[in-house]
Design a protein around this nucleic acid. Sequence first.
DNA 1: ATAACGCTTGTTATAATATAACATTATAAT
DNA 2: ATTATAATGTTATATTATAACAAGCGTTAT
Lengths: 132, 132
Amino acid sequence: MKHKQVNLSKNQQIVLETIRKAKKPLKAYSILSSVKKKGINAPPQVYRALEKLVELGVIHKIESKNAFVDCKNSECETSKATAFSICKKCQKITEIMNSKLSTYLTNFQDNTGMKYEKYNLEFYGLCKRCKL
Amino acid sequence: MKHKQVNLSKNQQIVLETIRKAKKPLKAYSILSSVKKKGINAPPQVYRALEKLVELGVIHKIESKNAFVDCKNSECETSKATAFSICKKCQKITEIMNSKLSTYLTNFQDNTGMKYEKYNLEFYGLCKRCKL
DNA sequence: ATAACGCTTGTTATAATATAACATTATAAT
DNA sequence: ATTATAATGTTATATTATAACAAGCGTTAT
């Protein structure tokens, strides 16, 4: 469960550090305002870094929230297979690391003959705390 | 595999018909421009209809595309369990109707004690045609 | 019947998210 | 060193989505 190491550019490092320090998924413009003091001034700089970090699999995008989290799962290579749980109440988002699930989905085949290379799964519900 | 019947308001009907006629997922502003001739003039009117239709489960949102498709699956009650395949090349999007998959995911439990009420799964790959 | 309610509508304005396009600079590969 | 690739900085703009408010319609409870 270690962070991956890759060669990152300056802006990519800054954005990644910001995401890693956060306790929750960050939105692009929230990242932007955090990194203004480090010399990143404009949206494209953030979006470009995010795009690359997603490609590398060191962060993931929570599609239904337009937010980004760092990948805590050393097994999900280059973000091909991602699964999250999202609490509808407190918005807590957790990456699901379950090898049975990922095996099941990676091998899933429907009847259309399509070959899947990648998936993203988002569960919604109430987390342990909010369920009480 | 029949369309669901529900009591819909005028704008909801108009938006739903537009989505049903389309051969592919539509974006909100594309819907807006289609329905201007029917007297719908502004984004909130479209977004409100979309929100309601999603709640009712007669359409689904493809989160990674910000696009909407009508539900062709009489089994996915009020959009609690949705799965799609998305072709990376031609962008063709298909709703996956596979009872094993939906049973598996509906019953999925991780180790955090979270109770899931809903999920959305999006597969990416190459469709039969584009694979050639 | 009418008041109260819930829901939908219409409208203007604006917030939030994301990319295009272009000029420049840094890094890596041969 | 030369070339190719990737990253940067910048301005402007496109795209997606919501806030806030006024008004109308249909139900139903009194």
